[in-house]
Design a protein around this nucleic acid. Sequence first.
RNA 1: GCGGAAUUGGUGAAGCGGUUAACACUCCGGUUUGUGGAUCCGGCAUGCGUGGGUUCGAGCCCCACAUUCCGCCCCA
Length: 428
Amino acid sequence: MRVQKPKGTVDILPDTSYQWDKVENIAKNFFRKANYQEIRTPMFENYEIFSRSSGESSDVVEKEMYDFMDKGDRHIALRPEGTAGVVRAYVENKLYGPEYPKPYNVFYIASMFRYERPQAGRQREFHQIGVESFGSDNALADVETIVLAHDLLSTLGIKKYELHINSLGNEAVRTAYRQALVDYFTPIKDKLSDDSQRRLKTNPLRILDSKDEEDIEFVSNAPRIRDYLDDESKKNFEFIIRTLSELKIDYVLDDDLVRGLDYYTGVIFEFMVEDTSLWQSKTTILGGGRYNHLVEEFDGPKTPAVGFGIGEERLMLVLKAQNPELLTDSNIDFYITNIGEETITKTVEIARELRKQGLKVQYDVEQKKLKAQFKKADKAKAKYVITLGVQEIEENTLNIKRLSDGKSYAFNMDEIANVNDLLQKLER
RNA sequence: GCGGAAUUGGUGAAGCGGUUAACACUCCGGUUUGUGGAUCCGGCAUGCGUGGGUUCGAGCCCCACAUUCCGCCCCA
């Protein structure tokens, strides 16, 4: 048997799982403070849910989808992103009903799947933390979403990033703009890179995003979508950037920012990190925007919506570089070393009592020699060691040693009933 | 999907086509048994990603595949 995980997947082992736990808990608490509730949707959906929402010709659908026929001959796909499934759940459960608050705000933390070549911060199974807000077309909802993204990153201790922002406008705007780009690039087609010549047919907007030297001079003179925005979109966008400025949230107006999924209709934004020790070029760790037609696309009522998603793997990489203290493990408080079979029961009792009072406590279930138990205490990074022998039991004393300086203290055994007082004495 | 590099024990790794795969760390045991992170002593790969091939003989050469990493496409 080949014992090997599938390509592009990772095991998150105990030496790092607590880091994920920590980050996810911070995110959850953060969202709840803004009154966003968690939603959990299936990790697979009918294929059409994703193909219709992301766009049939998008790369995500064309080559990155993990799809298969199930035993009932249903075309199933593992979710490549979070929004489509949440929108489907919103419609199917009629969460647009009058009894639900508007906007209807949710968050999720879940695995996503894309069939791609793995790289640093890119896997076939990866994790996203995302939020969606349904029901408000007010530009303040866009601001709130961006503010949440910004504040979550800063709560996590990520400081060095750029917020890029742009607006795609409504569908008519995008169609007109797309045509303008085609009209602009077609005459000079031969001078573009091979990739961009291909993009001209499949997704002209992406040419703006090209890193190719050949394209850059043409891109700078290309028509800008801001000049094509309808009054409504323009007004909203202006409100958004003005409010962000007033809130002292820095941003970069990025005419070349486009996003890979077809469903965006208004403001779009990305939080990008530049760190050459991690990635050669700027990398997006969080992306989002407004999508006002997706609910209708899924046969729901006309419902505007806005949201964002964070790539958790990339977030972890950036955190390791920018806020390593957040990712350090917490040590245990007490390791109980004991000598002799007569002391076993008392050892377990002390451990239970201390745990009940909220402390992290361990003892040696293997009952090795005292010396080996001390070594285990070191390895577990225990702050204190309690040593329990028949002597202590007879005298009813509690023998505590601080590992950092090797000082020992004797207390009355009864004092474990209130370990916080005890700790205070120890810390003096 | 395209291009490049890598793959030796728990870890970091050395290794000439030719007897028992160096060294270090970790780990385990011991250093006379109730106090640790030091020193010292001892132990720890029947195997060199997988499968073929070349050869008297392969970890070292050839081929295929797999996986990982880097870049591109694209994206989180």
